[in-house]
Simulated scan of single mutants.
Amino acid sequence: MSADLVHIILTDDDEDDRLLFSEALDEISIKTNLLLFEQGQKLMDYLFQPEIILPDMIFLDLNMPIKNGLQSLIDIRNHPRLKDIPIAMYSTSLADKDINDSFLSGANLYVNKPNCFNLLKKNLEQILQLNWKNHKQNLSKDSFLFRI
């Protein structure tokens, strides 16, 4: 990720979750630029524009109306220009099926939404400091589920 400014997208239909995520990013030491979308189709409409700056990382909520996170993930992984963007599934679900489906569909990380603001800040700081090239090359089921 760029040392100057990390471009992040969060797609989540829950307004409170978007607000907390944004506030947490504002309080960490890494400088970020955040774009927010409330559902996957709006994210895809944005990403398919040829003139945009591609994000350094995308956080996708799993359960959203119209186009959910898994459908968006699959669309991104099937698009030549977008397929290498690191993607973290960001969900309240810890169901094995959701984790497995996300892993098999090409997500780089699965993050359970923390119920504490300070933990969210800590998680985001650690995630944004990951060596993504190394993480992608050595991706396994153990490294996929993000744990503090």
Rank of each mutant, 00 (worst) to 15 (best):
I53N: 14
D16E: 14
P114Y: 12
D45H: 13
I58K: 01
I66H: 11
D98A: 14
S140A: 07
L130W: 02
N63F: 15
L109C: 05
P114F: 13
M1R: 04
D96L: 09
S143D: 04
N100R: 14
E125H: 12
G106S: 05
I53H: 09
D142P: 12
P80L: 01
N115Y: 10
D101W: 06
Q39E: 15
Q129T: 15
T32H: 04
N134H: 14
I66P: 13
L145A: 07
E27I: 10
L60P: 03
M89Y: 12
L54G: 12
D26K: 08
K141W: 15
L10A: 04
L35D: 08
L119E: 15
Q137V: 09
E15C: 12
M89E: 07
N100V: 15
L36W: 08
Y90K: 01
D4I: 11
F144P: 05
I52Q: 03
W132Y: 15
G106C: 08
Y46G: 06
H7G: 11
I66W: 03
L73M: 02
F48K: 14
L145D: 03
D56K: 06
I76G: 04
I127G: 03
I127R: 02
L43D: 05
S72R: 00
L73D: 08
D4C: 09
D17K: 00
